[in-house]
Design a protein around this nucleic acid. Structure first.
Lengths: 208, 208
DNA sequence: GTCTATATCAGGATAGAC
DNA sequence: GTCTATCCTGATATAGAC
């Protein structure tokens, strides 16, 4: 049985796919409807207008990324049970850090989808102030998470220093991700650069 | 007297402005025409179609950035004489490096315009393979320039290492630039992060 | 809640005069 | 080379039946 709420979710999943394929600018309500197997009217019914779709999709992607980045707190709905993804056994802090940062640089379909959509939304936010709020919030959470991981590797480092390193690493990740997605940097190379950057930053934290 | 070639250039300048204001997705041929003070038909006459405008604008921005990044080789046309911009007296290598990398993080109108348009084109390239070629070329030149500057500061470092550091620094710059332009990172903070990253990389090059 | 059908309109593109 | 006028497609959004 397919409830209305399921349908909403299905539409959002489709939206993420379409955005990953065509970009925010390329998202056509009609194509989205086709992808989700519903009529365009239904989309307007649920999301008011095209902008509404974008806003909701941003939130949706945000949640989903948070889940797979952190290893999915049991707090959230257990939906999407099909793919448990990586076992995520507790790792050494250092490995945990690498995993988190390299997660966005993978050729996994879902990850690529998220990264692409994410990059698009980030880029769109330059011109659409409506998106900034969510974007800033997500960005902050993400930086904080990385700062925490850095802190676990280098417990002696002061919080401020950790935060700065985290900002650099996440900004770098975004830059690399963009280059990868736009095809000017091979994935493996991007990953190597990221790993090296982590090493550089950790060294810096150790010998200030 | 206004030659046809001048007009072409004027249109491209306008295009850069419009892209900076509305984004690539937001560029309307009609608005561009208004901005440049010409008819839409003329734009199609000169650039074939909207995509043509984008391609040419990318090149245009590319050249312009190259000029102000490198301090303007006399090789290029001396056009645009009005603004000599910063005197650009020869600096210490280290300062030269900082200047080059921080140049994109400035609230100068022209720089902001270039950065924004650049970010847009980069983002667009994810979905429009036509743009990738120019993008890759520009990216390469830019990375190479930074690698050279790094080499001037640390002449003992091997070329490969320099290249990697340059890739990280430029990718970071792009990430920071995006965050700045989308309003989630204050300019001053972005600049501070960039400076620190330069310091970290240089240290790394010195004590491998 | 969901669909079919359609109104509406913005914006890319062209014809043809000058 | 440049303009005025106009065509026409493609995309958002709504009306109304079920």
């Amino acid at each position: 049985m397919t409830t209305a709420s399921d349908r909403r979710t299905a539409i959002l999943e489709s939206a993420a796919r379409v955005i990953a394929r065509r970009g925010v600018r390329g998202l056509r309500v009609e194509e989205l409807a086709a992808e989700a197997g519903v009529s365009t009217a239904l989309i307007y019914y649920h999301f008011k207008d095209r902008a509404g779709v974008l806003r909701r999709t941003l939130e949706f992607i945000n949640d989903r990324a948070e889940r797979y980045t952190t290893g999915g707190e049991p707090g959230a709905e257990p939906q999407e049970s099909p793919k448990p993804r990586e076992p995520l056994e507790p790792l050494e802090p250092r490995q945990e850090l690498e995993r988190a940062l390299l997660l966005e640089l993978q050729d996994d379909e879902l990850v690529r989808e998220n990264s692409t959509a994410w990059g698009e939304l980030r880029a769109s936010a330059v011109f659409e102030p409506d998106l900034r709020h969510d974007l800033a919030k997500a960005s902050l959470t993400w930086v904080q998470a990385v700062a925490d991981l850095l802190g676990q590797v280098q417990p002696m480092a002061p919080a401020g220093t950790l935060a700065l390193a985290a900002e650099r690493l996440t900004a770098l990740l975004e830059g690399l991700s963009m280059r990868w997605l736009s095809g000017i940097l091979p994935l493996a190379h991007a990953r190597a650069l990221m790993r090296e950057a982590i090493a550089v930053e950790l060294e810096r934290l150790e010998h200030p």
